[in-house]
């Protein structure tokens, strides 16, 4: 079996994996990082979105072997020192989650969106989140949260 090295939320793991093992199952079942859920099998829903070498990826559509040598950040690795990332806080403030199942992926997609577009328009936010489905919120508050998160992250950048 291939042996891979992968860093997840700052911890480096060496694992022997079956080639067919999905990255999301490596995270959930081998490494116990169950914060990243699985919502579909066709890469439509985006619930499993993580950062793979700094860019969003749907971890149910990546083989663990493809992530060899890569750095993965999941929803569990976002905050620092026990405090939430500004985007997580923004989701809380704007009531941008209900059942919470899409939330990890949605937050990761939102952060990824701001990487390229720090001050997105409503349209850019909606398009940037097109790969993440939510069945609870109707997206209104998610859009608001991303806008708020963008402002707070912008503020953090300016004051740092």
């Amino acid at each position: 079996m291939p042996r891979i090295t992968v860093t997840v939320d700052g911890i480096t793991y060496e694992e022997e994996v079956e080639p067919r093992l999905l990255l999301v199952h490596l995270l959930r079942e081998r490494l116990g990082r169950t914060g990243t859920p699985v919502g579909c099998d066709t890469s439509n829903c985006g619930a499993c979105t993580v950062m793979l070498d700094g860019k969003s990826a749907k971890s149910c559509s990546v083989l663990a072997v493809q992530a060899d040598g890569c750095e993965v950040v999941t929803i569990e690795g976002l905050g620092a020192n026990g405090s939430m990332h500004p985007m997580q806080r923004a989701f809380h403030e704007e009531h941008a989650l209900q059942c919470g199942y899409c939330t990890p992926g949605m937050v990761m997609a939102a952060i990824d969106l701001l990487r390229e577009t720090p001050e997105p328009s409503e349209e850019a936010i909606r398009e940037g989140l097109e790969g993440n489905l939510c069945r609870c919120t109707g997206y209104c508050n998610i859009v608001r949260a991303v806008r708020r998160g963008a402002q707070e992250m912008g503020r953090a950048v300016r004051t740092s």
């Binding site: 990082r33 569990e76 976002l78 939430m84 809380h92 989650l97 919470g100 990890p104 937050v107």
Partner: peptide, 10 residues
């Protein structure tokens, strides 16, 4: 409910 759901401690 949010804090747990937002940080993956589900």
């Amino acid at each position: 409910e949010d804090a747990r759901l937002l940080t993956g401690r589900t």
